[in-house]
Design a protein around this nucleic acid. Sequence first.
DNA 1: CGGGAAATTGAGTACGTTCAACGTTAGTGG
DNA 2: CCACTAACGTTGAACGTACTCAATTTCCCG
Lengths: 245, 245
Amino acid sequence: METAPVVDLETLRRNCANCSLRQLCLPAGIVASDVERLDRVVKRRKPVARGEHLFRVGSGAARIYVAREGSFKTVACSADGEQQVIGFHLPGELIGLDALGHGQHRCDAIALENARVCEVPLEELHHVAAQVPGLQRQLLRVIGRSMGRDQDHLEMMSRRQANDRVMLFLHSLSQRFETLGQDGSAFALPMTREDIGSYLGLVIETVSRSFTKLQDDGVIAVRGRQVRLLQQRQIADAVHGHALH
Amino acid sequence: METAPVVDLETLRRNCANCSLRQLCLPAGIVASDVERLDRVVKRRKPVARGEHLFRVGSGAARIYVAREGSFKTVACSADGEQQVIGFHLPGELIGLDALGHGQHRCDAIALENARVCEVPLEELHHVAAQVPGLQRQLLRVIGRSMGRDQDHLEMMSRRQANDRVMLFLHSLSQRFETLGQDGSAFALPMTREDIGSYLGLVIETVSRSFTKLQDDGVIAVRGRQVRLLQQRQIADAVHGHALH
DNA sequence: CGGGAAATTGAGTACGTTCAACGTTAGTGG
DNA sequence: CCACTAACGTTGAACGTACTCAATTTCCCG
């Protein structure tokens, strides 16, 4: 138990109105009084440790989550136990939308680092959204952005050359870090090479070789999980299909 | 121009309450009086001819569409003009969600056959959804199903073997036809081999060879676009990862 | 019936996978 | 604080599958 003043500070620091992700999250574009109503249905969950599951395949979809600190991966499991990483979720990005369709999660969500999430009960969100017109729109916008990232993923998978896939991947991450107000040209990968390989449909060795190749070509600098994009122009060109050969 | 009685029949046949797709579409689970309110904002569009665009990259996202008769493909265009089929849309399935995120369509939508769509202005849908709680939920369910199909697509792309991709593709189509109340074990592909190849990340020759191989193995029977699934068990096994070797 | 697109088939090549060995990093306990 | 260990990552050589290029056949629509 804590004394009253401390609780207040904690509350203040933690609610939507004061969240650094506010612009990216559900409250964006909603007037202060309505943010308060939204805030009341958002549960702050205790931290999720690295490697811990946020939810699992088959569990009900009573809530959606927003990564608040730390990033997550979602992993689809075939019946035979083969796994595939289908998404990475940086702070401000929604997790758990996969269950909207049939009420059951189709994938596992696992924390890539020690993380923290906001938890939004769907039923209560519906109630608030019905009363706050802007929230409904914003919910669809956020869902739409999530679908856009899925489409980006698909575009990566459709590239024939492993190098192109990796460049697209780095470009996508770069943009998302910049959206978070961080440096998009130098960042730490929160995931392993194995995760990247699974996400891109490549084996780990190929990912490793691609990183090495891109470094040799002077396009990026890699050291472990630390990455710097040296020739953003070249990467952007590859993204737009003007291949380098 | 038509005489009054004919118009009435047309109207009756065309509105949501009498649509054969009702169970799959936005009205599902909404009481009759509310269906009427939804119905009032749904515009029936004049038929879309085979090969015609429903919308194009960059156009605003004022509306979403539901395929009513005939199917569609959505095609993403890289800046260099390279195209990739990112989705097929059978009757009852939503088209145009790709613009929810940023208000602009990221792909072209093209009719694969002479088709007909329902057109739903987003702004008006928001209004009705705010008043009809069930509609909001149903909209999210339909969106969720659409995301589920995207995830299925991704799972196809992640398969290493071309045969597996094609089998997953046929399985997915089969299920969707059955949802429509049609025969899931024998159907006509609405799209070309080229479309299939683009969708699966394979060249057209590989798609052709896979069809031939699957036919030689007795798994399917193909003749042009007419397909029959002979060993659904084997296909289901492949889908679940128990490869055939 | 003719023309053009769609689909099939064949041979050679390129790229990523597989299998295997080695290096490196980070987290743990003595 | 350092040694130890296991997970993570890199590099190399041989192989296999899908791609490329090219020729031919089938199908569909006017």
